[in-house]
Design a protein around this nucleic acid. Structure first.
Lengths: 147, 147
DNA sequence: CTGAAACTGCAACTCGTTTGCAAAAGCAGA
DNA sequence: TCTGCTTTTGCAAACGAGTTGCAGTTTCAG
């Protein structure tokens, strides 16, 4: 079990949750995922380790992890939520519309402006969601595209 | 029927769609909505004018309007999509987490930085989604409307 | 080692949204 | 106007991600 997974598990225990075999496995899978998988994908990876673990359990566990702040759920495109282990450092996401891949980035400048905008509108900023959608810049040949 | 609704239905006709009574009514409701209603809410408003119009028709019509670029669908929180008539001027949204109200805003500075970030990551920015979540700073006269 | 409380698998359910179908209506052209 | 070919509609059933009730299983404090 990875380091990160152990942190996840121990934090889970501290949150008053019981540590079970399914949760260990799910924590492990989530902790080592660097590609923002969705729940069915996590389920697939979990099933490779223990096929008896059910999809509901994966949903339930991810939900618990999320409510304890151990993982984050994002919705980039399509209906299903994509999961990533929570990180200390806040970041936003760039969604590659051609491959569905997700790139993380961070812009203090944008963050600063967001807070400013909210304040000007008379609001205390409690959170935000910024997703950029884009396609890879073709260096040599242009791809087929719409105008 | 409002001006904006007439524009909507005439553009709809130009897109090769037939103009029907349900579509007129839905166009009217959507065109005069300034509060980003969700589809069930649009259905409610439509039903006040003609209760025989079905929810499916509202969904279908909103979908057509969206695919023709006449209205936009956003997802701020919760599962349901919220609708607004398309506007020439691009803007982002601030979501009042206390009332569910949506405030539109625009920041050229943020837009500029977004394109810059994307470019630095090797992407052509094709779109973005920025939603700020916040709560009202001071207790003032609030004119928030729920969906 | 025990047993109350928490957890699990399963199937059934929710809820926003979509779809198959037969009936109804729009919109050319005659 | 009327005709007839499409498109559109209402209904109900279907969909898909996610949730939940239940009964049996497991955890872990004592």
């Amino acid at each position: 079990m990875s380091d990160a997974a152990e942190v996840l598990i121990s934090q889970c225990r501290q949150a008053g949750q019981r540590i079970t075999a399914p949760r260990r496995i799910i924590a492990d899978v989530v902790a080592k995922a660097d590609d923002h998988p969705d729940v069915p994908e996590i389920y697939r990876r979990v099933a490779e380790i223990d096929p008896t673990i059910s999809l509901s359990t994966v949903y339930r566990t991810v939900k618990i992890f999320a409510s304890t702040g151990l993982v984050e759920r994002h919705s980039f495109a399509g209906g299903r939520a994509r999961i990533e282990p929570a990180s200390e450092v806040h970041h936003d996401h760039l969604f590659d519309i051609e491959s569905g891949a997700v790139i993380e980035f961070r812009s203090d400048e944008i963050e600063r402006l967001q807070a400013l905008v909210a304040k000007e509108l008379g609001f205390e900023l409690t959170g935000h969601r910024l997703v950029l959608y884009g396609r890879p810049l073709a260096r040599k040949a242009r791809r087929a595209r719409k105008p």
